[in-house]
Amino acid sequence: MAVRKPPTERQRRLGAELRKMREHVGLSLTEAAALHGTDRTTVSNIEAGRFGVSADRVRVWAANYSCPDAAYIDALSQMARERRAVSANWWESYRDRLAVAALDLAEMEHHASALRGAQITHLPGLLQHEDYVRAVFREAVPPLTPEALESRVEFRVRRRAVLDGAEAPECTFLIHEAALRMRFGEDRMIKSQLDHLLNQSDRKNVTIRVMPFAAGGFPSAGSSTLYVSGPVRQLDTVQLDVPTGSAFLSADTHLANYRSVLDRMEERCLGPDPSRDFIRDVMQDL
Rank of each mutant, 00 (worst) to 15 (best):
F278I: 10
L249M: 13
G117M: 04
A75Y: 02
A101T: 12
A118P: 05
R264I: 05
D263R: 15
R259P: 00
P231A: 15
S54H: 07
A16I: 01
M182T: 14
Y94V: 02
M283D: 00
P231Q: 14
D277Y: 07
R268P: 00
A178K: 08
Q239V: 14
P68G: 11
A48I: 00
Q128N: 06
S28E: 08
L240E: 04
R158F: 07
G230H: 07
V232E: 01
R84S: 06
D69S: 10
A140D: 13
R12W: 01
N64T: 10
L105G: 00
G271C: 10
G271N: 08
L27P: 01
N205F: 06
P143M: 04
R158K: 09
P212N: 03
C269G: 02
E167K: 12
E31R: 15
S28T: 15
E17V: 02
C171K: 00
R19L: 13
T237H: 02
L240F: 04
E31Q: 15
E150S: 10
D195L: 07
A215R: 06
S250D: 14
L98I: 12
G271I: 00
I279P: 09
Q234P: 01
E167I: 02
R159C: 09
P169E: 13
A63N: 09
A16F: 10
E139C: 11
L235K: 03
R40G: 02
L123H: 10
E31M: 13
P68V: 04
S229Q: 13
E266G: 08
R138H: 11
F218M: 10
W90M: 11
A33K: 03
Y94S: 08
P219F: 05
V25R: 14
V282K: 04
S66I: 02
S201G: 06
A221F: 15
F248C: 09
T145A: 10
E139R: 15
E47K: 00
E130Y: 01
R4W: 12
I279W: 05
R10C: 10
D273G: 02
V53H: 03
L255Y: 08
G49V: 03
Y94P: 13
E17I: 03
R209M: 12
G230L: 02
D281L: 03
A114N: 05
W61H: 03
C269Y: 08
V60Y: 09
A70K: 12
M79Q: 10
F137A: 01
R22E: 03
D252W: 05
V206S: 12
I279N: 00
E177K: 04
V3A: 03
R81W: 00
G49K: 00
N45E: 11
L249V: 01
R81M: 12
A101I: 02
W61D: 06
F155W: 04
S223R: 15
E170W: 02
L35M: 14
I46C: 08
W61G: 02
I190H: 14
F173Y: 13
R188K: 13
E92Q: 15
T253F: 09
